[in-house]
Simulated scan of single mutants.
Amino acid sequence: MKKHYMSGYDAVSDIADGSTLMVGGFGLVGIPEQMILGLVESEVKNLTIISNNCGVDDWGLGLLLKNHQIKKMIGSYVGENKEFERQVLSGELEVELIPQGTLAERIRAGGAGIPAFYTPAGVGTKVAEGKETRIFHGKEYVLEHALYADYSLIRAYQADEGGNLVYNKTARNFNPMIAAAGKITLAEVENIVATGKLNADQVHTPGIYVQGLLEAKQEKRIERKTIRNR
């Protein structure tokens, strides 16, 4: 049985200033909303965040940006966040932008214990500056190093008491690989069931990767709502 937390603040209360966090989600889909709010409440600072993007100005990781709690952001997309742009241009925020597939593979490699790998993505661009390159079968590749984190904060649909997780549709984006790459993984879920209630064939993340669970409701906001004129 994994440790259960009563609130987002309770779940993240041990995270210290200067920690490196991986945070699941794609846009606003599959983000651990309550744990992010817990980080805001805790006022922990100088964080390095590894995530596909940094939320929007008023929700998700954007709330941490607004509070100046993030020192460095490692991700692949920043287009929906004006405060992100402002902090980068003013020199308040350090940013490492990575091609999305490379970001996913660097996280996956961290979880798999693979220290580095070669990829063709970014060859001949600023992405490859200062990095080792090699030729394989007549094609140039750049060396990329695995990513790791002190804590991984993820979102799943369902968990059992043993921490086995099932994700819902698109929320199964960066969450499974992030779950494996943190020293401590905390999962925010919609409901927790007894051990044995989940179909083992449907489990996406084995409980061995998970140290704590938070059962919590989510607002599930839409990043950019577009509707058809009637």
Score class of each variant (00 low, 15 high):
residue 143 L to I: 01
residue 216 A to E: 07
residue 78 V to D: 13
residue 18 G to Y: 10
residue 147 L to R: 08
residue 22 M to G: 12
residue 80 E to N: 12
residue 7 S to E: 14
residue 206 P to E: 13
residue 82 K to F: 03
residue 54 C to G: 11
residue 27 G to Q: 15
residue 89 L to S: 13
residue 72 K to Y: 05
residue 37 L to R: 15
residue 77 Y to M: 02
residue 187 A to N: 10
residue 1 M to G: 12
residue 72 K to G: 00
residue 122 G to W: 08
residue 39 L to Y: 01
residue 36 I to Q: 06
residue 19 S to Q: 08
residue 210 V to E: 11
residue 57 D to Q: 09
residue 27 G to M: 08
residue 163 G to Q: 04
residue 178 I to T: 11
residue 54 C to H: 01
residue 105 E to P: 00
residue 141 Y to L: 01
residue 48 T to V: 04
residue 177 M to N: 03
residue 160 D to L: 05
residue 184 I to F: 11
residue 74 I to Q: 07
residue 110 G to E: 11
residue 22 M to K: 05
residue 131 K to H: 03
residue 93 L to F: 14
residue 2 K to T: 00
residue 2 K to S: 07
residue 163 G to P: 00
residue 123 V to M: 12
residue 19 S to I: 09
residue 161 E to D: 14
residue 102 T to P: 03
residue 201 D to E: 15
residue 109 A to K: 11
residue 143 L to C: 09
residue 19 S to N: 09
residue 69 Q to T: 14
residue 227 I to G: 12
residue 205 T to K: 03
residue 84 F to V: 02
residue 125 T to D: 04
residue 89 L to M: 04
residue 158 Q to C: 13
residue 161 E to S: 03
residue 209 Y to V: 03
residue 31 I to V: 07
residue 161 E to G: 09
residue 100 Q to M: 11
residue 123 V to Q: 08
residue 189 V to L: 01
residue 172 R to W: 02
residue 181 A to T: 06
residue 175 N to Y: 04
residue 142 V to D: 10
residue 124 G to N: 07
residue 90 S to H: 15
residue 222 I to N: 04
residue 2 K to P: 00
residue 191 N to G: 08
residue 213 L to D: 12
residue 136 F to W: 05
residue 143 L to T: 12
residue 14 D to Y: 08
residue 94 E to W: 05
residue 10 D to L: 10
residue 23 V to D: 02
residue 152 S to P: 00
residue 228 R to E: 11
residue 211 Q to N: 14
residue 135 I to M: 08
residue 198 L to V: 09
residue 169 K to A: 10
